[in-house]
Design a protein around this nucleic acid. Structure first.
Lengths: 212, 212
DNA sequence: GTCTATAAACAGATAGAC
DNA sequence: GTCTATCTGTTTATAGAC
């Protein structure tokens, strides 16, 4: 209805772009503060200040603290379209897998805390579980692709489902990262790669006493 | 100085016993509420009411909300001296191990939430990490005993440290329990036992392409 | 020892200025 | 669109009655 429709490109930013930029900055700040203080422990004032805005600006972009958190939950995980092709070119799939996940965790030190916060929130508010489930499935699917390809180009076992392997690998990884934060002396950095070797080594051989 | 010293056993409870009982009830309530609402989200009023007492009674027994939480962190984990001997008598160590941990988790549905809450608190307040570390070591040590014995009475590999195996097993278990709460359809109940079979099966065989 | 009442600080959310 | 000022409810913690 106004001239912006005819001339969307101005000197710098249109109003819509400016607002979108503000939203992104607020979401980034929210990720930071929620990770460091927790959902209940973080205040909207601190989030707004950390983004360089006021409380009013926050409420102009998000209906409530809870909706801000939910939007953050839904948005994060989109960025994690892991570089699958890169991993497949290497010789040792286990080392590559270990490096892939270590790198993903090392990129952001607050990431595991935020994930734990998401998990707790979803456990306590089941109506939000869908968002977390979608995020976990994206993560698992990316891993399934890598693992499936690695299993195929290598000493492939017959009846092993890549989806199950991916779940176990992810569980092992997340569990070890959490344990390592508590007791670094007892959980060495190589333990994940070691565990992966045990895991993949046992997939081909049958278990003595197991009929499956 | 009074007659209680001479006659500690009365009709019902001494004053000290009554206070200790109140403390225990408050700690139980705190575990419940902290697990359901989180540390910051729980109010001392709700904890006191859930225990059947008033706020005043709570502050008569604990200096602050934070000290109540810290005392809870230090106390829990004592109860978890797992029944090791029972497991060792069975034929299949993997099934036994799977049942052992599943039972430990199934006993209290709030347990994983409380553990996650402890982890987040300790990550955010490093001075409290020692208490969590002590708790994790007790848990790991109990598992090391079971695994070490199982590894010995069975197709024992030579250079595998039970402590490392225990860490990996625990990580896999905790990770799968968390994933299962998010997406039960993709993480079946048998997956943990399956993962254990892969893991132990691969410990004996060398990995193709690995020199260790 | 535990309860009631209250103090003091802080939270989430809103209204109107600019 | 964003900021300042404020309303309202809730929180931790304390003081004094019993």
């Amino acid at each position: 209805m106004n001239e912006d429709d005819a001339a969307p490109r101005r000197q710098r930013l249109t109003r819509a772009e400016a607002k979108a930029r503000t939203r992104e900055q607020l979401l980034d700040a929210a990720a930071r503060i929620f990770a460091r203080k927790g959902y209940a422990g973080a205040s909207v004032e601190e989030i707004a200040e950390s983004a360089g805005y006021s409380i009013g600006a926050l409420y102009s972009n998000f209906a409530s603290k809870e909706q801000l958190f939910l939007e953050l939950m839904a948005a994060r995980g989109e960025h994690r379209v892991t570089a699958v092709a890169e991993v497949l070119g290497t010789e040792d799939p286990v080392d590559a897998l270990a490096r892939l996940l270590e790198r993903a965790a090392g990129r952001d030190p607050d990431l595991m805390a935020l994930r734990a916060e998401f998990w707790l929130y979803a456990v306590r508010n089941p109506e939000a579980m869908g968002a977390l489930r979608a995020q976990q499935r994206r993560q698992a699917d990316a891993l399934i692709e890598v693992i499936g390809a690695a299993m195929e180009r290598w000493s492939t076992p017959p009846g092993v489902a890549p989806a199950e392997v991916a779940a176990v690998v992810l569980a092992m990884f997340q569990g070890l990262v959490r344990q390592r934060r508590i007791d670094p002396d007892r959980v060495s950095g190589d333990l994940f790669a070691q565990g992966l070797r045990w895991l993949f080594g046992g997939m081909g051989s049958a278990w003595p006493g197991a009929e499956q």
